[in-house]
């Protein structure tokens, strides 16, 4: 499997990453890409979102060295569960404005089910295991984002699926 893992401040080009995945091998029959964007509002821990929670900017901190090895492990787990030909994970760090791209997960496989499921798995595990921390700024006030139970729940479904 071809693996590309990048943590970077600069933006990424979805089309370029798609082409790289597509051209990995002539047996690639499916490519799934997911791009996560900065919302201009913050969803509260209770799941409410409103203009009252609008943000000016978002900042992403990570643990250099550890984040990369955790992402490698998550990709390895995906590769053990599904038949994958190539995987790309790009996560941005630093200061980001609303509507900017934060994260890209791309998976190439022979058949679509592997790519679809692996992409979801990668995002669910990335969100709950990789050492990134978000803070948001609003009217000059900075606040750390709380982790969401719904993300933990989404990641746990893969444990159940593995037990079956």
């Amino acid at each position: 499997m071809t693996v590309r893992i990048r943590i970077q401040q600069q933006d990424f080009d979805l089309a370029e990453e798609y082409q790289l995945l597509r051209q990995t091998d002539s047996v690639v029959g499916a490519v799934v890409t997911f791009a996560g964007l900065v919302r201009d509002f913050e969803v509260s821990a209770e799941g409410h979102d409103s203009l009252a929670n609008s943000i000016d900017s978002l900042s992403l901190q990570h643990y250099p060295g550890m984040t990369e090895s955790l992402l490698e492990k998550i990709v390895e787990q995906a590769n053990e569960r599904w038949n994958l030909i190539a995987t790309t994970v790009i996560h941005r760090v630093g200061d980001l404005a609303p509507r900017e791209q934060i994260v890209l997960v791309g998976v190439a496989s022979q058949h679509r089910a592997d790519a679809f499921e692996a992409a979801q798995f990668l995002m669910d595990y990335l969100k709950t295991q990789a050492t990134f921390w978000k803070s948001v700024s609003r009217n000059g006030e900075q606040r750390w984002i709380e982790s969401k139970a719904s993300d933990q729940h989404a990641a746990r479904r893969w444990e159940r699926a593995a037990d079956e």
């Binding site: 996560g36 992403l60 990570h62 643990y63 060295g65 550890m66 090895s69 996560h91 934060i102 994260v103 995002m123 990335l126 969100k127 709950t128 295991q129 990789a130 050492t131 990134f132 921390w133 978000k134 750390w144 984002i145 709380e146 982790s147 993300d151």
Partner: peptide
């Protein structure tokens, strides 16, 4: 974590170990 590996709180430490305290992650 010790030297970038998640460990138990009673993990023995050695001179030069890097100990990091990690709140719940919120990336993605």
């Amino acid at each position: 974590s010790v030297n970038k590996m998640i460990v138990d709180w009673d993990q023995p430490l050695f001179d030069g170990s890097e100990v990091a305290f990690l709140p719940p992650v919120t990336g993605g």
